[in-house]
Simulated scan of single mutants.
Amino acid sequence: MLPGNKIYLRFFTLEDASERLRLQLENRAFFEKFSMERQESFYTLEAQEQAIANQIEGREKDEEYQFGIYTKDDVLIGTINLFFVARGAIQSGFIGYFLDERFNGRGYTTEAVNLLVQYAFEELKLHRIEAGVMPHNIGSIKVLTKAGFHKEGLARKNVKINGRWEDHELLAIVNPKD
């Protein structure tokens, strides 16, 4: 568990599948504005269990680290993920997150990003974390800049979202100890 002031992060277990499904179903329209295309089967308990199993395996292989974002009273309000972890001469990963729309604007995502960055730099010893955000997602860009990420450029038509290739602002943070 990674404790913060308003929230905490913890790895998902298979027992969390029903809560993950609830979060996804309650925020489906909101999350789909910003995510890669999802099949209808994504919105099943079995799919959430399989996703958690895959993430546990990814963590064991040092490829990805996904956490739930929880309020201090143990309510799952989002997810945050460090993925495409590369070792060797690169020592980097990508960050992605989703927060329940009802909890936006309260600083929870910024705190979650800060906790994940600290974990990535101090525990995983990564050198760099990157993010890609659609330019019109001003809230997410603000979250990342508050957490110390810097804009590095624009990836044109980078990710297919809702059937359309979307541009993404590229942002990154480098471990200050490197």
Rank of each mutant, 00 (worst) to 15 (best):
K33D: 04
I52L: 02
E26T: 06
D62A: 05
A47Q: 01
E40G: 06
F67V: 05
F30P: 01
E63N: 11
Y108F: 07
I69Q: 06
F103A: 03
F12S: 03
G105H: 03
G93H: 06
Q24H: 10
H150A: 06
Q24R: 15
V85C: 11
A53N: 10
L124R: 04
F83R: 11
K61N: 13
E169H: 08
H150S: 14
A112I: 09
E123Y: 04
T44R: 07
E169C: 03
K157E: 11
L23Q: 01
Q48W: 01
E101N: 09
G4M: 13
N158C: 15
V143D: 02
T110I: 04
G4T: 07
Y70M: 11
I161R: 08
E19G: 08
R28L: 14
W165H: 07
I56S: 05
K146H: 06
E64P: 06
R20A: 04
Q24A: 09
Y43R: 14
A47G: 02
F30L: 04
K33Q: 12
I80R: 03
G4A: 13
G148C: 08
G58L: 12
E19R: 09
T71Y: 08
V113K: 00
I52E: 00
A53W: 06
K177E: 11
N104P: 03
A89H: 09
L115D: 01
K177N: 15
R10I: 10
I129A: 00
V75S: 05
R106S: 12
N81L: 03
Q24T: 10
R38I: 10
G78D: 07
F30R: 12
R10F: 15
E57S: 12
K151I: 14
K72P: 04
L116W: 07
A120K: 01
T13A: 06
Y8D: 03
A147C: 05
F94S: 14
I90C: 15
Q118M: 09
I173E: 14
Q50C: 08
E152L: 12
G4Q: 07
E49T: 06
I129Y: 00
I52D: 00
Y97S: 00
F84K: 12
K157L: 03
